[in-house]
Amino acid sequence: MNRRLAVCLMLLIALATAGEALAIDEAPAFTDEPRQLRYEALTQELRCVVCQSNSIADSNASMATDLRRLVREMIAAGKTDDEIRDFMTARYGDFVLYKPPLTARTYLLWASPVLLLLIGVGSVVAVIVRRSQRPLAADDTEPGAGS
């Protein structure tokens, strides 16, 4: 029993760290930590436009390889993260960013979680208020009260 638990734990740890082990580049792009971290963060937030559901850090598509090389070169050339993001969106649009910027076109997108939450809370409150206002006895006598 204990051994099984230990195996499960080890598997979980292996799964959790698999992301690190599966880094797609054969060698780190940069030898210095700060630039390597920027490279990793940027390639994680840029979408692979061919595969569309991967970041370019996760994709093996040749297009993603090209984009990773470009990111590496631009970091090496001293470009800022924003300059690299602008370069990509000028060519591929906001779609290339996993985190789209807050613009007039994306207000609804960004507001949708809050809106949905408000609608949910609103409905719950409405139901509670209506139930509490109804005479208690009516609950038992009214046919189809549950619907």
């Binding site: 090209d66 060519r91 591929y92």
Partner: peptide
């Protein structure tokens, strides 16, 4: 050959 111009044109497939 190395796909740079394709990226400039926003080509993805």
């Amino acid at each position: 050959d190395d796909g740079r111009v394709a990226i400039d044109w926003g080509v993805y497939g």
